[in-house]
Design a protein around this nucleic acid. Structure first.
Lengths: 154, 154
DNA sequence: GCCAATTCGCTATGTCAGATAGCATTATTG
DNA sequence: CAATAATGCTATCTGACATAGCGAATTGGC
């Protein structure tokens, strides 16, 4: 029997989606996510947990609530994430001196020592995915992306 | 008692994440997602199902497998999505004339009639989220985003 | 022509990051 | 003091991805 031809990809498929920022944002986001998982397969840190550790590293003693606000994570979703990182010995929870509801967060010595390596991995991951973009293009992309989300229910 | 001061947001929080494209991509993606849900709350279409319908509309008779490849959706995830849209009377499945494994897809008359309105909603949604960006900036963002994901495990 | 490999549509199941609702404790404000 | 709000938490739901494996159909190498 002849090879079936009707399944060959046509030349002018898909036009409307190409011009939607939201669609291309999701596709690009998936690509970044996948590559991040490859880079951090052995650690293991996910984008969210990496972001949490990096932020606590730069803001030692930050409260759980502030961390959530900074990263756009709801309090209900923060609780198990914090618990996971605490159970894995990467962050330490302490009580706030004046407000008994608040818990303040610190990296453990182990996490603090590992952070430079993890940061390098994150940069290597970005470098790999964004290989085709010049430095200037990456800066532009970064700037435009920030203007999309900053101040909008973050 | 005095107002507790230590929880005030500090001025120079978070530096490393700001320069990571992946992080800003996810934040921007979440903002777009949330606004999309608002715009399509009454329809109801999600970004994925809207993308499927728009693509079938522009490629009537496309196969389920080709649609999945085009949108980066795995076959295992396509099956229930196609079933949902078929059950809701928005797409119609027909057998392929020559290949009995293949099902080709068409919009129903109802979906075809509604598509212009749904496309307008999608544009309104984009317009609302990207209000701060000029046309030229949106075009730049679009172009850079496409270069991030095109040809990478789509 | 036959057999192996591939493709297609599908089920079952797991993961991850979001969401809401509701809770007890503690702080703040009127 | 009473009402309101904030904090950390549990339980539960959702959407969008993932893998593994299935029967049927098709294709390609021999």
């Amino acid at each position: 029997m002849e090879k079936i031809e009707s399944r060959e990809k046509s030349t002018a498929e898909r036009r409307a989606l190409d011009s939607l920022v939201g669609y291309n944002l999701r596709r690009a986001s998936v690509v970044m996510l996948n590559d991040f998982e490859v880079e951090f397969a052995e650690v293991p840190l996910r984008p969210t947990t990496f972001a949490m550790l990096a932020t606590v590293d730069e803001n030692p003693g930050i409260s759980s609530a502030d961390l959530g606000r900074l990263l756009g994570i709801k309090s209900a979703n923060m609780a198990p994430l914090i618990a996971e990182l605490a159970n894995r010995g990467l962050i330490e929870r302490r009580g706030h001196a004046e407000d008994k509801r608040v818990q303040i967060l610190f990296l453990t010595a182990e996490a603090r020592n590992a952070m430079p390596k993890w940061r390098q991995q994150a940069l290597r991951h970005e470098e790999r995915v964004l290989l085709d973009l010049t430095r200037s293009e990456r800066a532009t992309l970064l700037r435009l992306l920030r203007r999309v989300w900053i101040g909008k229910g973050g």
